[in-house]
Amino acid sequence: MKSILLTISAAAVMGLLGSCTKEPLNNLTEDESRIYITNRDSSANFSSYTTFSIVDSVSVISNNRLEGKDITAYDAAVIDALKTRLQQQGYTLVSKSQSPDIGINVSRIYNTYSGIVSYPDYWGSYYGYWDPFYWGYPGYGYGFPTWYGSYQITEGALSIDALDLKDAGAEKQIKGVWMGLVRGSGVFRTQNAANHIKSLFDQSTYFKSGQ
């Protein structure tokens, strides 16, 4: 009887000690949970652009379907932060009718499938939701270099794409030259919007005008 009790006690001690694993997710703050990913076309010369324009609403993409365009307080905060930061980077904000060198698309993406840091053609999946007509090039296709990776998304992500409109006419293609992606908890909190833009551009030191 004594040895049975001893064995049970020993097993219980082992089990309890085994449950002492320090769980990473329980030790992350909301800020720490987020990741900021940027990539660019290495052939693009960001200093050659001088003007930019930005969409007036955000496209909402859910499970690979365009749900529509929206402009919530959060969306407005993202667009405002982008306008401010790009001007700080030396670009001049113009309307889209004034032939901007760069067009900025903003998207909110909601997906339910999971995966981490894999790159199955992110832009290949989402660029088409922005009608080239918006940028004054009806009928043109989007062209994105193959380096543009993709991330499978478990919940929501904020996606920002910079398009080369300056050379679109000559190349008959709207070329993506930069992407920024924010994932993690609190991505869509309005008070975090400015920090998202700051983080994306702080790590993209090449993204500045030569003017």
Partner: peptide, 14 residues
């Protein structure tokens, strides 16, 4: 990353 992208993150190894 190898594909040229930059990723800002808190990294946890467990």
């Amino acid at each position: 990353l190898d594909d040229g992208s930059d990723i800002s993150a808190v990294l946890t190894n467990s």
